[in-house]
Design a protein around this nucleic acid. Structure first.
Lengths: 307, 307
DNA sequence: CGGGACTCATGCCGTCTTGATATGAGTCAG
DNA sequence: CTGACTCATATCAAGACGGCATGAGTCCCG
């Protein structure tokens, strides 16, 4: 029924939790108090939950409200990443620091870097210039950007680099696919014989796969289903019965919810490193150096809990 | 400027990425095609980005669009958790399986369980009955719910239990606080002497802290700032200069972005286990057993907090 | 070569939602 | 007891949104 709860409503709710007052929350978002009141009432109606205990001296959360706020914070952080990211894509003009980034990095790592970076340097606009690995290396070597991030297995000798994270390609299928229940690894031969779904040529992920297959003495056939976006590949793999090869970063969420299942693979090395790259003559300094440091820090922060 | 991008717009964008067609995406969400077209145009205007390449034979993503879609999926998953969670809170009436849960579990673990559980059993309505640990144990021992989740350090002998995850309380301060730069551990004595911000009495987190302090031979003074919600505690600790004690699950996101900093603590054991509890006479079976299994599985997966 | 089925965009209209304002009731501190 | 705060309700205009009709372009099949 209630398809989409208002983001403004959730935002408001979180602020009420923080300030203890509907009016104060309304002021924070520049909204008139009566409208805030109405919006919160609507939210409660939509969710069919009593979220707030309104007294004439302020508002307190109910137990349910408390829980919903925690969830809402998470959700709002997610859309904040979209907004911040979109700004970084659009703000080429006003940017003080432009960073070239490959698709995988931009999609899965950059949002957190940007969010954190923004807190440390609120006055600094950083812009994202995203393309494939070739594009990134070109931008860096030509000196048009001081820093880039790529997921290539190797980088040319003309640039300096440091590894900020590791990544691995996974073979995934929908839960209904026969391979989902396989315990013995799939071989490279089986893989090329299957009706694999792929990104179009030029994608770094695809090139990594091709190279790995090549090293194992195999080659992809010509007749493949090629889709325009990672999302389309995921959808095809999940719904339909075809296997796909995607970055583990790209499918982490789907693996967690069981929408996709990872298939063990034999005799193929599908790992690669994500590197920061720069011209040796232009070693990162100041903000750029901070960004690299931050990237490396969040890269290794993934395993379980931190000290 | 562009405060809140429409969720409907992001949803639509993701579906366009999956289907390759604006019209098809519109049909999926039950929206007329012209409106979808208009909404997407508005989204592009708001973000100031060209997301789609519209041909008269369908629509393809631009590079920027591709990236935004990945971010949007994450964000949408976040709000989906809110919606699913809210349903589980509200649906007491129609529920086929009701589970009692403490606040910490409900806030930080339940959303993923619910999302995953929903995929495995789409027809099953599970309802969340959240309260403090005492409440949960009461519901379970009285037989009103077949299963509960608590974060107590111990459980009574009258119930059976299994540990599904571990948790630890952290002392956190805002980045501006003096303790943020401390390398030597804070002692229990320092902690009770500080102007600690706390939840109101009755919170499981607070009781764990009190017990740990008690074991170390300390007691909290009376005059404390008590706030009504975890969100308010976080805000007070982050903005103001006061330290707070919160579950590591609760502050994972803030630690990642640097809004809060964890302070090392000496001579206090602040760890606890999150347990599933049930009556020995009513060992979980079917869906309930599946839920416990699932909880344990995601517990030892990555916290990956993110999204 | 010419339907037919698909793609998308534009223009129009009625409705519903939203924002702004005014006001009243209840609580709390000086 | 007054002033500053809390919240809710009512009202009105402006803007957004949904639905429908239409036109232009592409692709495929007979």
């Amino acid at each position: 029924m209630s398809g989409q709860p208002d983001l403004a409503g959730l935002d408001l709710l979180v602020r009420v939790a923080e300030t203890g007052s509907v009016g104060a929350a309304a002021r924070q978002v520049g909204m008139a108090q009566p409208n805030a009141s109405r919006l919160l009432a609507k939210l409660e109606r939509q969710l069919d939950l009593a979220l707030l205990v309104r007294t004439t001296a302020g508002s307190r959360l109910t137990t349910e409200g408390e829980v919903v706020v925690a969830w809402a914070r998470d959700a709002l952080a997610g859309v904040e990443r979209v907004v911040l990211g979109a700004r970084s894509l659009a703000a080429q003009r006003k940017a003080h620091l432009t960073v070239a980034s490959s698709l995988t990095v931009a999609e899965h790592l950059a949002p957190r870097w940007l969010a954190r970076f923004r807190r440390e340097h609120p006055d600094l606009h950083v812009s994202l210039d995203v393309g494939n690995s070739h594009h990134v290396l070109d931008r860096v070597t030509s000196g048009r950007v001081p820093l880039g991030f790529v997921e290539s297995p190797t980088v040319p000798r003309t640039v300096a680099s440091t590894t900020v994270a590791r990544d691995r390609l996974l073979v995934v299928v929908g839960p209904a696919h026969a391979w989902a229940r396989r315990r013995t690894p799939v071989t490279a031969a089986e893989l090329v014989a299957s009706d694999l779904v792929l990104r179009e040529a030029g994608s770094g992920t695809r090139e990594t796969l091709v190279r790995a297959l090549d090293l194992a003495g195999h080659a992809l056939g010509e007749q493949r289903l090629e889709l325009a976006s990672t999302a389309a590949v995921k959808a095809a793999a999940g719904e339909g019965g075809a296997p796909a090869v995607l970055s583990e970063l790209a499918v982490a969420a789907e693996l967690a919810t069981g929408q996709l299942v990872a298939v063990p693979v034999a005799d193929l090395d599908l790992s690669r490193s994500l590197r920061a790259v720069w011209l040796p003559s232009r070693r990162p300094e100041g903000p750029a150096a901070a960004l690299v440091r931050l990237a490396r820090a969040s890269g290794q922060a993934s395993p379980s809990s931190s000290a």
